[in-house]
Design a protein around this nucleic acid. Structure first.
Lengths: 258, 258
DNA sequence: CGTTCCCTTGACACCGATCAACTCTGGTGG
DNA sequence: CCACCAGAGTTGATCGGTGTCAAGGGAACG
């Protein structure tokens, strides 16, 4: 197991649903909480469902009745435009939580689609609403996760609005690298990237054709290797400098302390 | 006083700080709470400070010690890139609240600048942390406001990533129209837009020159009038159709019931 | 062994950036 | 009252990044 996982994740797996430790690792990377808090998080992951690739977890307009925790696989938030094109606004990785307090709003203004086959824990909303009352530290941890999600959204705006196509791709890869390493899915600068070039294009506001050309350029320059769904970042420092990637917006303060 | 303000805003002004009713109107547009809850909100606005135009409320890297409520004037979140260019990621309008739970994160990953001279209420963070315990309805209202802010961020990603320059401008204007009308700052489809073309450019990921040309186009097509800081939307329906603007992401459900 | 999905390549068009100059306005000081 | 100035808006010429369209290739899968 990767050294990036925190102490909870390496605890003995006492009938924990697979992937649940990723969720705990992610929250634990940004916040501190007790072992018994961690057990509460495990109990949230009881109702696990498998979603096939390309199926919607929730569609635009739905009223969500529970929130989702991604245990395995990738998902993406997306909005569909008038002309039929799709814009992805976030990737949901293992350990990510989605639609926290979703029932406060009555209708989804966007959809969530499984990019790969994904195992998703469904948590009734009421459980989540009561949680901060008994577990204040977890309440803070969830707030913190929400604020980090917002910071990621802002960085996407900057990325899409200001950076050239090659840097945009590089920045996305740096973000995914950072987020995946928190949940132990990066080994030796390598990680699985189950994205087609079309999906990358939908996330970055570019066309698949241009993604293809810019990926070739990044490969030629020795910045990345990206074949058959596996991305290798040759030198993280060089790629992040090229992309203008600044880790700080992900607020990994606690991570450094662990 | 505009008919868009809700019942709280039209209550007798019992020594309420100017602009405080905008804050109450904004929260009240999306959530319901009691008159005594509203009074609690008024009490939050005791420490009001005036910020000159172009001055930072908070700079990137600062550790915020209180949260901000905009009572009058405009502000903007922004990030500065390596090359010195600036990307605005949100406009803060009268009634908007910012850095809710800011102290949960230790350092700001972006700055906030006053676009006009602005009157800002400063609320100590501890006050806000305790508020949901005694006023659960307000806690829900603040959560709801946060979720709507997130929806706006997502719509900005879509806007910047997918729409042509003219539609991008039109979409921004529709958003501002909708948000300003909630706090009573739109009359007869007209509202003050204290933005230079450069600021619009910084928000939309375009150059001032191109903003200028596209504004001319929108004017020629009779969609807007925009002179000396005052924007008029000639026909909201036509402009919003042109922009692909869908009001629903701002979740104005409660607004309709009032 | 064909089908399907994804990746790749080339030619060309166009939107928006860039650079540079000019105008207009409001404010300020002589 | 006028001269000057700074900031914002406007215009034109040209360049380049990315989109578009269309065709072909390769690998996985039935």
């Amino acid at each position: 197991m990767s050294t990036n996982l925190n102490r909870f994740a390496s605890a003995p797996a006492t009938a924990r649903p697979t992937g649940c430790d990723r969720f705990i690792a992610k929250l634990g990377a940004a916040s501190k909480f007790s072992e018994s808090d961690a057990q509460v998080l495990v109990d949230l992951c009881r109702d696990v469902r498998t979603i096939p690739a390309r199926h919607d977890l929730i569609s635009e307009g739905d009223s969500p009745h529970h929130l989702h925790i991604v245990l395995e696989g990738w998902a993406a938030r997306y909005k569909t435009l008038e002309d039929g094109s799709r814009q992805i606004t976030a990737f949901l990785l293992p350990g990510d939580i989605s639609d926290l307090h979703g029932t406060i709003l009555s209708r989804m203004d966007h959809g969530i689609v499984a990019i790969t086959r994904a195992r998703i824990a469904h948590v009734p909303h009421q459980v989540m609403e009561d949680l901060p009352l008994h577990r204040p530290e977890l309440g803070r941890a969830l707030w913190r996760a929400t604020l980090i999600d917002e910071a990621v959204l802002r960085s996407w705006i900057v990325n899409v609005a200001r950076r050239s196509a090659d840097k945009r791709i590089a920045h996305l890869f740096c973000e995914l690298h950072a987020r995946l390493s928190v949940v132990g899915l990066v080994q030796d600068e390598r990680f699985d990237l189950p994205l087609t070039q079309e999906v990358v294009a939908d996330a970055l506001g570019l066309t698949p054709v241009h993604i293809n050309r810019m990926l070739q350029k990044l490969r030629e320059e020795g910045l990345i290797t990206f074949t058959s769904g596996r991305l290798t970042i040759e030198e993280f420092g060089r790629l992040s400098k090229f992309a203008g990637f600044d880790l700080n917006y992900l607020h990994p303060q606690q991570l450094r302390q662990v």
